[in-house]
Amino acid sequence: MLTLNRHFQPHPDVVDTPLDNDETVLLHLTRSAYYTLNPTGSRIWRGLKQGWSLQDISHSLQQVFEVDAQRADRSVLALVQELSENELVQPPN
Rank of each mutant, 00 (worst) to 15 (best):
D56Q: 15
R71H: 15
D13E: 11
Q81N: 10
A33E: 04
D68V: 11
W52Y: 15
N21P: 00
D16P: 04
L37R: 01
V67A: 08
A69C: 13
M1S: 07
R6H: 13
H7K: 11
L4F: 00
K49Q: 14
S60G: 10
V14D: 04
L4K: 02
T36K: 06
Q81P: 06
E85M: 10
H59K: 14
Y34R: 11
N86P: 00
N5P: 08
R31D: 13
E66I: 09
R43C: 01
D16M: 12
T40S: 10
V15F: 02
E87V: 07
P39Q: 05
Q90S: 13
V14I: 06
G47W: 04
H11E: 05
K49W: 00
F65D: 12
E87C: 10
R31S: 08
L61S: 03
R46S: 09
D56M: 09
L83I: 03
I44A: 01
W45D: 01
V76P: 06
V25K: 00
L26T: 00
P10Y: 05
D13P: 01
L2F: 05
S42R: 03
S84R: 07
K49L: 05
L83D: 05
T40D: 03
P39R: 06
D68T: 12
Y35M: 03
T30D: 10
A33G: 00
L48C: 01
E87N: 14
R43W: 00
V67I: 11
K49P: 01
Q90V: 08
Q62G: 02
Y35G: 02
G41F: 04
N86H: 08
A78V: 13
E66S: 09
F8N: 00
H28M: 02
Q70A: 15
I44T: 03
S32I: 12
I57T: 12
L26W: 03
T3W: 12
Q55Y: 13
H28A: 06
V64P: 01
M1T: 01
L29Y: 08
H28I: 02
F65L: 10
S60T: 11
V89L: 03
E87G: 05
E85F: 06
D13K: 05
P91K: 06
R31K: 11
W52K: 15
Q63C: 10
Q70L: 15
E87P: 01
P39E: 04
Q9Y: 05
L19C: 04
E87D: 15
G47F: 05
N86E: 04
L77I: 13
A69G: 05
D56L: 12
G41T: 09
Q70T: 13
L77W: 07
P91S: 11
S84E: 13
G51V: 02
E23H: 11
A78C: 07
A69W: 10
T17Q: 15
Y35C: 00
Q55P: 08
Q50E: 14
V80I: 15
S53L: 08
T24G: 03
Q50S: 11
R71S: 11
V25R: 01
E66Y: 11
A72F: 06
N38G: 15
K49I: 06
